[in-house]
Amino acid sequence: MKRPILLLTILFIIAMVFELVNVYLLNKVTTDSIYVIKIKQEISSYKQKNIVLKTEILESTSMNMIASRASDLGFVESKEVISLYSPLTVAVGK
């Protein structure tokens, strides 16, 4: 008689432990899910920003934009091709 009661008690304790672990894990999943959703929202927001920035970069680095900016900064087109046929001395020792 004592043995079955002992067995039942042990089983009950194991079941309670499992239930407590289950509650703990469910709680953790719930809080982690909130965290995961926030991260996903951040990722989505960064993806949107990346798309916007990518578009802005493309527009800023177009050849027409670069040429226009270069002209504003005073760069002019070279009209000549200068060829050096022999080495030029750039520095001499004492």
Binding site: T55, L58, E59, S62, M63
Partner: peptide, 8 residues
């Protein structure tokens, strides 16, 4: 569809 270089 986006053409960053416009008419180029």
């Amino acid at each position: 569809r986006f053409y960053p270089e416009a008419s180029m």
